[in-house]
Write a protein that binds this DNA or RNA. Structure first.
Length: 158
DNA sequence: GCCAACGTTGGC
DNA sequence: GCCAACGTTGGC
């Protein structure tokens, strides 16, 4: 399969792009939505590029780029009763939830806010801009990925 | 903090 | 299988 593109959301207070930059890589635990899980389990490939989206932030928007460095495997955090995302229905023999590993690629010199995404006609139809779209892991079309990257790499003068 | 839009749960 | 109640997400 050719290069694929994704958008993954994280609340920066929980884990921001700066945290990923510091760590270099991380495992993407805590996804508890079947559609999002299926993308991680069935479709993500090593090398796929990811728009790193800060949600519930001021402002929300795309902060940079990461890439997939390990394909889907069981989210072992679901088995830990002390974990915030503990799910007793999941266990090592029959894991309900999956995760992938992400590697830091770049932090944009220019943070691309949601407002800016919405204002750019090239990005019309992007899933993340759809009303009521809450999926934390979603596919992105190549043309949209490139459009966002272009915006992020431009240094704006204020 | 509010609340609209979703997804999940559970009674029937 | 329906659907009301509930919990969560996430923009504002």
């Amino acid at each position: 399969m050719s290069q694929q593109y994704w958008l993954m959301k994280s609340e920066p207070e929980a884990y921001s792009i700066d945290d990923l930059k510091r760590d270099g890589k991380t495992y993407w635990d805590g996804v508890r939505n079947y559609q999002a899980r299926n993308f991680m389990r069935d479709q993500m490939k090593v090398g796929d590029l990811v728009l790193y989206y800060h949600s519930n932030a001021e402002p929300s928007g795309v902060a940079g780029i990461a890439k997939i460095c390990r394909t889907g495997y069981p989210d072992f955090c679901a088995w830990d009763p002390k974990d915030k995302h503990y799910d007793p229905s999941s266990n090592p023999a029959k894991p309900t939830w999956m995760m992938v590993d992400l590697e830091f690629v770049e932090k944009f010199p220019h943070f691309v806010s949601l407002q800016e995404l919405k204002a750019n006609p090239d990005l019309d139809g992007m899933l993340v801009l759809k009303k009521g779209m809450r999926l934390s892991v979603q596919p992105v079309e190549e043309i949209h990925f490139e459009g966002v990257r272009r915006l992020g790499r431009v240094r704006h003068r204020d």
